[in-house]
Design a binder for these strands. Structure first.
Length: 570
RNA sequence: CGGGGUGUAGCGCAGCCCGGUAGCGCGCCUGGUUUGGGACCAGGAUGUCGGAGGUUCGAAUCCUCUCACCCCGACCA
């Protein structure tokens, strides 16, 4: 591609509303233009990147035996009503009516549509397994779109769905996809990690997320550096402390803690470590009142909590309810001396504590030196209900956990029969019996990958694209293209040669000053650059420079074509 | 949804407090000089000052409403 025949739209200054690097750089490099909140136009240069990502995914999915199809973005409400997701989904599902007042949605995911295809087409176990996928534009009306393309409302997604005659076969395909995703992200040149995950609203059992590791990631991942354990913190198990509960050494005392409602304030006020305090959280389930206890420095994990059968679903108690059940406003509530019909659920860590501090159920007072059994009844339940923190023991017993941040770019689920049962997608097995199909579902955020790749690969000059997804592999930067016939000839010849051998090359024939040219080519992230100037040509040399490296090397003009082809394996 | 902030030329911003009819840098156009890291000189074009209403002789500026966008929060006793 010649730059004069293309459309570069770089910006010297990033628009003020961009926050994270990838967003700023994407705007500056002219990859995207904002049209509305969370909705972007992909400019020609950006689209080249998106297409490369897409094609790698497509190649690997095909190789893994999946078959591509394309489902509609607009889906009739009836399909969503069949699985009750029409009611379950919140406002992030974009709904609208057509001219006949019939309800439709813009699909945020396509389990219903694909299951509808499967139940119409698949009659026999002989047709299974089947894995269908698409690469398609999705819409999710996010509460708060942000970070540019990273959490957009409209985005490109690869979503695949597999159908199986048995759970064993689903597990086989799940592993196949685990391997395939690993290949895809490796080929994309990303540093990533597969982590055990929560299944969220889509439902099902087994699930892994694939995260690109980046400090700006929205998800926290707990992993064990000395083993391959990795899990979303939402899911990572908080194990019980190894040591048993210590014997009490203090008497319980009531102390005044005026205006100290947060554990941090109480600990500081009393001169005690935060780990000696207990935080009490009041929740309601079916008008029944529960008190949840976590250590002061820990936080409640709502996902774990909501999975407890006797609490599902739960909501936080209102201030009035807290007062009604405990006789005290929030801020000073605690588990001591409360009515027997209030169930106490203690986190494992709390159950092991002794001589701790908690609210006295009396405004302005806390209790210190509190001990289980002696001062209050043992909890009704001792369960893992908190988020793990750095340094917690790894659930696999292989040492302390570390926590890092990641950008979720892929997610695989074992859906089992959730959708096939709801939509009566069944087949006849070997014995002629109808059975619900086992299903798996596998997503990749194509759009988000571009942002994540930039987040992971950039410097102060701009983007450093991994070669596999760079908009161009090589740039030719001729200095004085319009002035110098030798430069122009050398540049044109090299351009033709590389193009003929299938190299994705950009010839910057804009006749810009060298500074402008270099700045643009670096901003845009082209991995390799060949600079051709009269100065070098006099000695028969051109310069080669790698984007990720500041040093350049002189190469004889006569060899440069072969040099680049060698470099790229073209 | 709650809190905070911002809307002025394609982009970044000033002007607003103290009302007098809009400016700077970059970019863009023309001509010339330049050409190894975002050139220089000369000339030029570009704005419903986010929108509506109000106050006023007069509103980018003051008041009311509204829309859009950004940031933070939505973990909490």
């Amino acid at each position: 591609m010649r730059a004069t025949q293309f459309f570069l739209a770089t910006l010297k200054e990033a628009p003020a509303d961009a926050e994270i690097v990838s967003h700023k750089l994407m705007l500056r490099a002219g990859l995207i233009k904002r049209v509305a909140g969370g909705i972007y136009t992909w400019m020609p240069l950006g689209l080249r990147i998106l297409r490369k990502v897409e094609n790698i995914i497509r190649e690997e999915m095909d190789r893994a035996g999946a078959i591509e199809l394309l489902m509609p973005a607009v889906v009739p409400a009836e399909l969503w009503q069949e699985t009750s997701r029409w009611e379950m989904y919140g406002p992030e599902l974009l709904r609208f009516k057509d001219r006949h007042q019939r309800d439709f949605v813009i699909g945020p995911t396509h389990e219903e549509v694909i299951t509808d295809v499967a139940r119409r087409e698949i009659k026999s176990y002989r047709q299974l397994p089947l894995h269908l996928y698409q690469i398609q534009t999705k819409f999710r009306d996010e509460i708060r779109p942000r970070f540019g393309v990273m959490r957009g409302r409209e985005f490109l997604m690869k979503d695949g769905y597999s159908f199986h005659a048995s759970y064993e076969d689903l597990q086989r395909e799940y592993q196949n996809m685990h391997d395939t995703y690993t290949r895809i992200f490796t080929r994309l040149g990303l540093s990533f990690r597969a982590v055990a995950a929560d299944t969220g609203s889509i439902g099902g059992t087994g699930s892994h997320e694939f995260h690109v590791l980046a400090d700006s990631g929205e998800d926290a991942i707990a992993f064990c550096p000395s083993s391959n354990y990795a899990a979303n913190v939402e899911l990572a198990e908080g194990v019980a402390p190894a040591l048993p509960r210590k014997d009490h050494s203090e008497q319980m005392k009531r102390v005044a803690t005026p205006d100290k409602t947060r554990c941090e304030d109480v600990a500081e006020f009393l001169g005690l470590p935060l780990t000696k305090t207990v935080k009490a959280i009041a929740v309601m389930h079916n008008e029944q009142f529960f008190l949840l206890l976590v250590r002061g420095d820990h936080t409640l994990n709502e996902i774990k909590t909501s999975k407890l059968p006797f609490l599902n679903p739960f909501r936080f108690a209102s201030d009035d309810e807290v007062e009604r059940f405990l006789g005290c406003r929030p801020g000073y509530i605690g588990p001591v001396g409360i009515a027997h019909d209030v169930q106490i659920i203690a986190d494992r860590t709390v159950a092991q504590m002794s001589d701790f501090v908690c609210g006295a159920n009396e405004a302005g007072f806390h209790l210190t030196g509190v001990n289980w059994d002696r001062d209050l009844r043992e909890p009704n339940y001792v369960i893992d209900i908190r988020n793990v923190v750095e340094g917690d023991p790894s659930p696999d017993g292989m040492g302390p956990l570390s926590i890092c941040r990641g950008i979720e770019v892929g997610h695989i689920f074992q859906l089992r029969t959730k959708y096939s049962e709801a939509m009566r997608a069944s087949f006849l097995d070997e014995s002629g019996q109808p059975r619900a199909m086992e299903m798996g579902c596998y997503g990749i955020g194509v759009t988000r990958i571009v942002g994540a790749a930039i987040e992971q690969n950039h410097d102060d000059r701009g983007i450093i694209f991994p070669r596999a997804i760079a908009p161009f592999e090589v740039a030719i930067a001729p200095i004085g293209y319009g002035k110098s016939q030798p430069v122009q000839n050398a540049a044109n010849t090299l351009y033709s040669e590389l193009k003929a051998s299938g190299v994705d090359v950009l010839l910057d024939d804009r006749d810009e000053r060298p500074g402008v040219m270099f700045a643009d080519l670096e901003l845009v992230g082209i991995p390799h650059r060949i600079t051709i100037g009269e100065r070098g040509l006099k000695e028969g040399m051109v310069e080669y420079q790698e984007r990720c490296n500041t040093a350049s090397v002189k190469i004889p003009l006569a060899h440069i074509g072969a040099y680049v082809r060698e470099l790229l394996g073209a």
